[in-house]
Nucleic acid binder design. Structure first.
Lengths: 336, 336
DNA sequence: GATGTTTGTGAAATCGTTTTCATTGATAAA
DNA sequence: TTTATCAATGAAAACGATTTCACAAACATC
């Protein structure tokens, strides 16, 4: 039925080995035979069977990309960059969505073993980051977005601590004093951004007011709605959200309450998603170099495959503060 | 090195065939042996080699998902739905981004053959839709988002013609008369929505004013900027954009020109992306049932695998018109 | 008691490649 | 001339699983 390398060999009048050599590895084949084989391939419409090739050659030419949810624009952008480079390098990508669920993470890591992937790019939850130091994988891993100091894997992350500090600093310079912080509770980024927020607030002699919530816009919306309902006196003058999902929830809650950004409440957060430019006066955000993160992660993975014993590297990229109207200078009449 | 089914068999004191039976197919194995095998699997840390399994069993348990760009929220949402169902059904998904490039489409279709996928879900460009009727694939295909009447594949699409008509109708009812249309030039959806727009405009006795542009927000932005620069007299009173990408470009151009939505220009379009709810007075859009599209496509593919000879089906889903402030009733003082 | 039938198991073939190893003829070196 | 080296090729093994086939034991039927 389906045409195999033997059929090609028969048509070309050579051995299967020779066909294989023409197709794949760079071994020398005489020009005459090479031409015969190529003709036979065209004539038969032969397509190599990648499963057979992987089995025999013992490399899968496949990497895994495990993220929380591809619908999150951050992961979408990173993922697209990863895929582009992977396909260029002749690698297949297996994409997995964990929904920040450690069980799914474990499931997919097992799947990666069964696929015999050559490597994995992984944005793990806090729980799994910790567990990975104990049970090493059978493949090299590059962590993205999330990692910790003691993780034994290559990683490429944002300077979360400094970036959160930049937001606090900016808001402070604009005259805000009562900035509250909403942080995702599933990832290490939430913690690091939280710590950066606390440190900066403390540095300015301000009272931190931070809360960890599930990483959904609904949770952020509910939290902000609650804070607004507490009344004007208790109300913060600015909100910082630790990622794009939360940020959207914040904006929704503010709009719904009929408040004005930044007059009633300033808003800032992480992830320069395209809508942040278009909403109200524009939302001030920390822009992550999403393509660079994807490209760097792939580059690190490829280098690791080349030199498995090189020392473990952790690349920290800087965020860029994109200032927009949502954090315009506070009106002095209302200043504390 | 890596532990194979033979190792497990040796440890369990049975034949490899028995191990295979315990692991995989539902053939009967005595309880005693089953327990021994399971113990041996645990003890050895055995992981099946999926390449070997695929080669021998001759089904890849893999489907392809070929879309223009996973960063487009429409495809992201559809893709996520597809992946969820696929993984549930024990199928792997290979994701490919074509960037609306027919050459990449051809490349990836060839890749699908080499992977021996069991099926493909595909959002093709116009060119490839046409070419596919000529050269049938070696695997069943479900087209999504894009198809044409004569395509010989299952398909699940939006009722583009009617949906575009709904937008025109709504704008007309709100008092708008000079609605221009921006349509993507790479896909059949652009054409169908264009035709629906023309039909509805004609029905109302209005002069259609439509343009096909590349499917990027930059192209839309440039086009609208150009139209605005032509001066108030020539200016349309409403803009319809045939997808979320174009819609974003439209909004950017309008904001940049300092015009007010809908006072100076009403805006409506396709794709209920989350930002459309938050921008200005909210943007009126046709919401596509994105999850349903993904789920339906997967369901159709699975059914097709079950019954290869069933007649070809084309499922047409309705869009929902989400009315927001961007198309509020036209002020009568300015009515034509 | 003789003869099917069913059930559980293992030996061996097989999937479609790549890789190892042997062979051949040609060329270089002694 | 003889021997060593090399390049090009084919035969056969191997990759790690599933599947086919054969067989024995247990059971049912007449």
């Amino acid at each position: 039925m389906t045409v195999s390398i033997k059929d090609v060999a028969r048509v070309a009048g050579v051995s299967p080995a020779t066909v294989s050599r023409v197709l794949g590895n760079g071994t020398v084949v005489s020009d005459a035979l090479r031409a015969q084989v190529e003709a036979a391939v065209r004539k038969t419409g032969y397509r190599p069977n990648l499963s057979a090739r992987r089995l025999r050659s013992r490399h899968s030419q496949t990497i895994g990309l495990i993220v929380a949810d591809i619908r999150n624009p951050f992961f979408t952008a990173v993922g697209r960059a990863v895929e582009d480079i992977a396909y260029q390098a002749g690698l297949r990508v297996i994409l997995c969505n964990t929904d920040e669920n450690p069980e799914k993470e474990a499931l997919y890591l097992r799947l990666m073993e069964e696929e015999r992937v050559t490597g994995v790019i992984f944005a793990p939850t806090r729980q799994t980051v910790d567990r990975m130091t104990e049970t090493p994988q059978s493949f090299p891993t590059v962590l993205i977005d999330r990692a910790c100091h003691r993780s034994q894997e290559d990683a490429v992350v944002l300077d979360n601590h400094a970036s959160a500090g930049m937001l606090v600093e900016h808001l402070h310079a604009q005259g805000y004093r009562r900035m509250i912080g909403l942080f995702g509770n599933a990832s290490t980024t939430g913690i690091e951004r939280h710590d950066g927020y606390i440190a900066a607030m403390t540095r300015f002699g301000l009272t931190p007011d931070a809360v960890f919530i599930p990483p959904t816009s609904e949770a952020a919306e509910a939290e902000v709605r609650r804070r607004i309902a507490e009344g004007v006196a208790a109300r913060p003058d600015a909100v910082i959200a630790s990622n794009g999902l939360l940020l959207m929830g914040v904006v929704r809650a503010v709009r719904e309450a009929g408040l004005v950004i930044p007059g009633d409440l300033a808003v800032a957060g992480f992830d320069n998603e395209r809508w942040t430019e278009l909403v109200g006066p524009g939302i001030t955000v920390i822009e992550q170099p999403v393509e660079a993160i994807g490209r760097t992660a792939m580059a690190m993975l490829l280098e690791r495959l080349d030199t498995p014993d090189a020392p473990i590297r952790k690349v920290v990229l800087n965020g860029r503060c994109v200032v927009r109207g949502s954090t315009a200078a506070r009106r002095t009449s209302r200043a504390v």
